[in-house]
């Protein structure tokens, strides 16, 4: 789907890419000579909305940095057009770094949302740069660890909520500090916090749906089990009707009813 692929040439373009790399998480701390090495090796692609940059399940191992425009990271679902959007990614951010590292098939698809410019760095080029400058690997590790820690805090939160849901405790849905999540107010920016909040908001929505369905099921169950314990009912009736009081009452009642019927006829 890549429509064009060209090396980075011309001083304007080089400057532009240099600025972009210096602002990115991965490369910002690298010395200029390493950045120059990278610039020589990356290829620029231009794409149209709907074009696929990465396809889930494919075995390729380049990493891409968004230069201009936005992409969505999705997992296709069954049925036409079905997909679960994991993330929106914009300028200065990377996609495809997992396969670059572990060479496993792509875990998600990445699709252009707008006119798009991306920079591709192949695994081979990446490894070559790293051979010349091993510290790049460390920078990558630091950035990845930072993100991993961040994700873990949020995962922890989600796991806690999951336990509560399993216990039927939905009190966290009412807690005041979750009110933004409840209203689905999420920051669309690409900061880690915004991403994590989007993830939590999706989780929150799911929990609300689960609670709703559970309540509805309970009500249905209630409707279905208007059943009366026969044995208990009989024994309760026996205990009432067995008394002398009741026997006398029943007799008097028949008399009263007879008299009323008679007076009605008269």
């Amino acid at each position: 789907m890549m429509r064009t692929a060209r090396p980075i040439t011309g001083s304007n373009m080089v400057q532009e890419i240099y600025d972009l790399l210096k602002q990115s998480d991965w490369f910002s701390n690298l010395p200029d000579e390493v950045i120059s090495l990278l610039i020589k090796r990356v290829k620029q692609h231009e794409l149209k909305p709907g074009d696929k940059i990465i396809e889930r399940g494919k075995r390729d191992d380049s990493v891409f940095m968004i230069q201009e425009g936005w992409v969505k990271v999705v997992i296709p679902e069954e049925g036409e057009d079905g997909e679960m959007v994991l993330n929106h990614v914009g300028p200065g951010e990377m996609v495809g770094e997992l396969s670059l590292v572990d060479q496993r098939p792509r875990s998600a698809s990445v699709i252009a949302l707008s006119d798009l410019k991306v920079l591709e760095l192949t695994r081979r080029d990446f490894l070559e740069v790293m051979q010349e400058y091993p510290m790049m690997g460390l920078h990558m590790l630091i950035t990845t660890s930072k993100r991993m820690r961040f994700v873990l805090t949020y995962l922890e939160q989600a796991v806690q909520w999951s336990h509560k849901i399993a216990e039927g405790d939905y009190s966290f849905l009412e807690e005041a500090n979750n009110s933004d999540l409840e209203r689905g107010i999420v920051d669309n920016s690409s900061s880690d916090t915004a991403r994590a909040n989007r993830f939590l908001a999706a989780f929150f929505k799911m929990a609300q749906d689960v609670r709703k369905r559970e309540t509805e099921l309970q009500e249905q169950v209630k409707l279905l089990i208007i059943q009366i314990d026969r044995t208990k009912r009989d024994s309760e009736i026996d205990s009432i009707t067995g008394s002398d009081f009741f026997t006398k009452l029943k007799l008097e009642t028949s008399q009263i009813r007879e008299e009323r019927d008679k007076s009605k006829k008269d």
Binding site: I226, Q227, I228, K232, R233, I240, T241
Partner: peptide, 10 residues
């Protein structure tokens, strides 16, 4: 339900 059922019978 249960108590009402008994009352109905009575």
């Amino acid at each position: 339900f249960q108590g009402t059922a008994v009352t109905v019978d009575i």
